[in-house]
C-alpha cells in the first residue's frame, strides 16, 4: 500500500484504492467524482500532517483528554426507561415494537 508521505510533491493524492477502502470502512457511498475529489484533498491534507514528523515525541505520554478526573461512577439504581413509542419515534421504519432493517440473514 502506498503511503501518502511517500508520494511526490507533485502528486500528493491518496490512492483511489485507499479512498475506496476507507469509504467502505466508514460506510459512505461515494460517487466517482467524490472519490476523485477526496483522493486529492485527503492527499493534500495528509501531506500537510507530515509536519508532525519533525517533532520528537519519544517518551511523551499521549494526551487522550484534557479532563482532570478519574473514577467517575453512577450507582446501580434503576431509572425509568423511555416509553417504547418515544424510543421508536425517530426510526425510519418500525413495526410498532422493533426497529426494522433489511433481512440480515440474506
Amino acid at each position: 500500500m502506498t503511503e501518502p508521505q511517500q508520494a511526490t510533491k507533485t502528486s500528493p493524492a491518496l490512492p483511489l484504492s485507499d479512498v475506496a477502502r476507507i469509504a467502505r470502512l466508514a460506510r459512505l457511498k461515494l460517487t466517482e467524482n467524490e472519490l476523485a475529489i477526496y483522493s486529492n484533498q485527503l492527499g493534500k491534507i495528509l501531506e500537510f500532517m507530515t509536519v508532525l514528523r519533525e517533532v520528537d515525541t519519544t517518551g511523551v505520554e499521549p494526551m487522550i483528554s484534557a479532563v482532570p478526573c478519574e473514577n467517575v461512577f453512577r450507582e446501580d439504581l434503576i431509572v425509568e426507561s423511555l416509553p417504547r413509542k418515544l424510543a421508536l419515534a425517530n426510526a425510519p421504519k418500525t413495526d410498532g415494537k422493533s426497529f426494522l432493517v433489511p433481512n440480515i440473514l440474506g
Binding site: L52, V55, T57, V60, E61, P62, M63, I64
Partner: peptide
C-alpha cells in the same frame, strides 16, 4: 502521534 503533540 497527534495525541503526543497535544501533550506538548
Amino acid at each position: 502521534k497527534a495525541l503526543q503533540i497535544r501533550r506538548l
